[in-house]
Design a protein around this nucleic acid. Structure first.
Length: 469
DNA sequence: TTTTGAGTTGTTCGA
DNA sequence: GTCGAACAACTCAAA
């Protein structure tokens, strides 16, 4: 009997895995394979790399319970797969589609050289299937969302991996590189399931009102699990749809709807990346490709290190470097500050986030940055500049988010924590915080930055003469 | 082809 | 403290 290879990529789970399911349904022996691609392994993103390794170890443990194992190799993926296919006498390979430019180049080579079958699973719906009647892609979220919801459901119900997954032969596997266990986001499938259950039970129906609160756990915190496929996006949609049927009131229904739309945002940005791969190196909107960004390495450094003197921005940036995850609103506040207050190229911020976030996904990270910088699809109007003080007061009313991540301000009363620069000398002594010594003074005066930014964006717009295409 | 309605997440100013 | 308008006029999607 021949073998089917399940090429594991960013679908590190057994249950509700459409790719594994396809492989199992061939009736062949299924051998799970993961290739560590040196081109994707670097030391720029330690939290994500570590999460991946932990996820691989957890997947291997699950497989061993079923008499199988994760066959791991290092090297150029297509070459390694070709070698393995020969060693295993495999007649077919199944893999989940991935839409980054790098993945698509690699996978095109795989299609030409290997007996490979592609399965949609990174998104609930294939990006090429949610398009306008003329076949062109959506570039505005709301029409995309409506079209997405009108599509026939792709939900196929729960699928549990078989209790036995033994392959015919055991061939040598390279060891999984060492990693540091993530104490905040344990990279296991049961942990992801637990979080989903917890969020559906207690969180989903209040999501609309609490999701923006920086000081509460109002979000699902599932993003790292979605990023590496420790949980299935279709399972999230199905669980949400099911819970929505039992919503106790219209507010709860609305909350479930809001959460579902967030998941559709994820589908939207995957679709944007699929149809417009140039967004990885260029603003989506050609009018905003000539903004005269500031070259301000000191300001960039202060932003990266959480030393801007704007408490909520600093809290976000320190949360990022400490745990590799940041509340979505805090991401927007920090991103808006970099692009629209410091007038530093959003791509600098995109890269920093990408290297530090445990959940960083090219499509979502890029989409979020382009949106916040006002240069992307359906973007925030460019004159919309977040005021970090107001955002802090509104979404961290007691200042507890700031106290947690900027501990030198923890003693300040709520009245001052969003504006430590208003402290009198007496208050500095009383709370034992000296500005410029214990906490930085503001690195910019925001009263001028809005106009500076509007001018810079206007210049780019005015200089743009090519027709929009 | 032309027209029309709509478009995630804000801030500031002045009444 | 609250409210509406301005920000700047724009593009997208669908009828």
């Amino acid at each position: 009997m021949s073998t089917a290879i399940w090429w594991v990529r960013r679908d590190l789970r057994l249950d509700n895995n459409p790719t594994l399911r396809r492989a199992v349904e061939t009736g062949l022996f299924v051998q799970p394979v993961f290739i560590l691609d040196p081109a994707l392994l670097n030391d720029d993103a330690p939290p994500r790399q570590s999460f991946l390794m932990e996820g691989l170890a957890a997947l291997n443990a699950l497989l061993r319970q079923r008499g199988s194992y994760l066959l791991l190799r290092h090297g150029e993926p297509i070459q390694q797969l070709a070698l393995l296919a020969r060693e295993l006498e495999a007649s077919i390979i199944f893999a989940e589609e991935d839409y980054t430019p790098y993945a698509r180049r690699r996978d095109a080579v795989a299609t030409q050289n290997l007996p490979i079958q592609w399965v949609t699973g990174l998104t609930a719906l294939h990006p090429a299937s949610v398009v306008k009647v003329d076949g062109s892609p959506y570039t505005v979220f709301t029409p995309f969302m409506k079209a997405w919801k009108s599509m026939p459901s792709s939900l196929t119900g729960e699928w549990k991996a078989p209790a036995k997954l033994a392959g015919p032969v055991s061939i040598e596997s390279h060891p999984i590189p060492s990693f540091k266990k993530n104490t905040i986001f344990p990279a296991t499938q049961p942990e992801a399931e637990k979080r989903l259950e917890g969020f559906i039970d207690d969180g989903l129906f209040s999501y609309a009102e609490s999701r923006d609160r920086l000081d509460l756990d109002g979000t699902s915190s599932l993003s790292p699990y979605l990023r590496f496929g420790l949980i299935s996006i279709r399972q999230l949609f199905a669980a949400t749809e099911q819970a929505k049927q039992q919503a106790p009131d219209s507010a709860a229904t609305k909350s479930a709807e809001t959460w579902m739309n967030e998941l559709i945002w994820r589908e939207f940005y995957q679709s944007i990346l699929y149809h417009f791969p140039f967004v990885t190196y260029s603003a989506f909107n050609p009018r905003f490709r000539a903004i005269p960004w500031r070259d301000a390495p000191q300001d960039l450094l202060a932003w990266q290190q959480g030393r801007t003197g704007f408490p909520v921005v600093d809290a976000a940036m320190r949360q990022l470097s400490t745990i590799g995850w940041v509340h979505n609103r805090a991401r927007m506040i920090a991103a808006s500050f970099l692009a629209k207050d410091l007038l530093i190229n959003w791509q600098e911020g995109e890269r920093w986030f990408f290297n530090h976030l445990v959940d960083a996904d090219i499509a979502a990270n890029n989409g979020g940055w382009q949106w916040t910088a006002g240069v992307g699809t359906d973007a925030a109007p460019y004159f919309r500049v977040f005021n970090p003080t107001l955002q802090g007061i509104k979404f961290d009313p007691e200042g507890n988010y700031i106290r947690r991540w900027v501990p030198e301000l923890a003693n300040l009363p709520t009245k001052l924590i969003h504006q430590p620069e208003l402290m009198t000398a007496l208050e500095e002594t009383r709370y034992n915080v000296r500005l410029g010594r214990d906490y930085p003074r503001r690195i910019i005066d925001r009263s001028q930055t809005r106009e500076r930014t509007l001018n810079a964006y206007q210049l780019s717009k005015d200089g743009f003469t090519q027709p929009y295409s």
